[in-house]
Amino acid sequence: MDPFVVLVLCLSCLLLLSIWRQSSGRGKLPPGPTPLPVIGNILQIDIKDVSKSLTNLSKIYGPVFTLYFGLERMVVLHGYEVVKEALIDLGEEFSGRGHFPLAERANRGFGIVFSNGKRWKEIRRFSLMTLRNFGMGKRSIEDRVQEEARCLVEELRKTKASPCDPTFILGCAPCNVICSIIFQKRFDYKDQQFLNLMEKLNENIRIVSTPWIQICNNFPTIIDYFPGTHNKLLKNLAFMESDILEKVKEHQESMDINNPRDFIDCFLIKMEKEKQNQQSEFTIENLVITAADLLGAGTETTSTTLRYALLLLLKHPEVTAKVQEEIERVIGRNRSPCMQDRGHMPYTDAVVHEVQRYIDLIPTSLPHAVTCDVKFRNYLIPKGTTILTSLTSVLHDNKEFPNPEMFDPRHFLDEGGNFKKSNYFMPFSAGKRICVGEGLARMELFLFLTFILQNFNLKSLIDPKDLDTTPVVNGFASVPPFYQLCFIPV
């Protein structure tokens, strides 16, 4: 058959498939802009700032609406009420993970971030239990974070109060905490193996944040037939998995079943207990991918939040002064901060919360999916439909947070200066898919920041009023603009 005829037939089939998918069930789905064949609503979305586009569309179609990214149908949730109703009140029905062709290629359905069903539930339950087990290797997770915080302070001392970009050092600290939990080992910041790991993690975040990856996920045929950065992403992930597998083999040879040292040991012990169960989800494949998931999810998000926190503290020296006064009063100079201190430091706690609220790190979270046909607000959402959640619409709700575009710790303080919780605080998402490392991340943010401010004054290279804190939105995360500062020993 003539190649031209084959091409026309293929394009015609794709067009018909697109029209059929977009028209099927439209009477039951939430409203939304009319999609174009094949490309859907992509032309109506700013790929570099999806969150802003969703906010604009919500003003037209309401808090629940339908979009098509290519052939992929998505239902968008915008605003606290619908997000709570879906992710919390109907948590089980909305607990699936959205379709990610690239991740599915890399992870093969294993791990904790992109798995679904029984596998996801069992691996998540085990990971939560293990991360909360403060007795691994007779050292609590808090001990590990405190140790890394001391190392971080010593690295900052080496800058000798000269101007520096904190990106690298602030990236090393949370990565080392995860390494300590998974591998029972922290690395020197100049260790070549550690630097290679950091390089792969950072490069992957840069790649994932590009519009090209959005295109690959919406048109998965590209993955096999086109060159691009997605190939580098898959190569980096394969490198990390190979490295983790080597460490798993080392653990198998040296493990003491009665004295687990780290996450890998705990997983291997669980595998041993379930070795007679042919349906067990505790396999080497799941261990390797879960460890890679924890490394990827637990490094860049925390380091970016820390980097943004220091920029905001530079911009608002009056806030920094209040935090340091609270540190001096509650902790002093002669001991290290600990998590028990947080309950006695409402202002510092409010500042950490406000940093996370203000920066809105992951504006749309990772997409969910419905696990069955769901009736939601008089609409029928078919099983498997991807759910896109606007966390921006919750964290920047102007009824809950007056002047949401302003950095103001009073958003989390009552009139008496006591810490005030808010149900709208969802930087880790909400419901059954809430970030498994939430507790660890909150511990790291509090301890790293208090250790830094206990030991250093922060000095800006320019007038604080002239510092730009506008986030650089890159399609996946909101990151701070480049800046330098000086760490002046107190």
Rank of each mutant, 00 (worst) to 15 (best):
G70Q: 02
F482N: 14
C372F: 07
H251K: 05
V330A: 06
L237W: 13
E328W: 15
A161L: 08
V50R: 07
N176V: 00
D397S: 09
D293N: 07
Y483A: 04
N202T: 14
L57D: 01
Y358T: 08
L54M: 10
Q324E: 09
S209I: 09
K399W: 13
N231A: 11
T392Q: 07
S336P: 11
V479Q: 15
T130V: 13
G296N: 15
F419Q: 04
L67G: 01
N116W: 04
D243P: 05
F114V: 09
E318V: 08
L156F: 10
Y379M: 08
R333G: 11
D373S: 05
Q184P: 12
F114Y: 11
G98P: 15
R73D: 02
G62Q: 00
L43F: 13
F446P: 03
V75S: 00
E250Q: 14
V319D: 05
I207P: 05
V113N: 09
Q340V: 11
G111A: 02
P337T: 03
L485P: 02
G79Y: 00
H396L: 06
P481A: 08
I331R: 01
Q276A: 14
E354V: 02
A103T: 09
K232D: 08
K52Q: 10
L16K: 01
E155V: 09
R206P: 04
T302W: 01
E241M: 11
G475Q: 09
E253A: 11
S180W: 08
E104L: 10
T210E: 11
L461I: 15
G332V: 04
E250I: 08
C175V: 06
P367G: 05
S429K: 01
S140R: 07
K160L: 10
G79L: 00
T320C: 13
F4Q: 02
I381H: 00
K59A: 11
E328T: 09
I244K: 02
L77I: 10
I205L: 13
F219C: 11
N217K: 10
S422Y: 02
P464L: 12
S422E: 01
S422N: 07
P166E: 01
K121D: 14
F239M: 14
G40Q: 01
M240S: 04
V153S: 04
E281C: 11
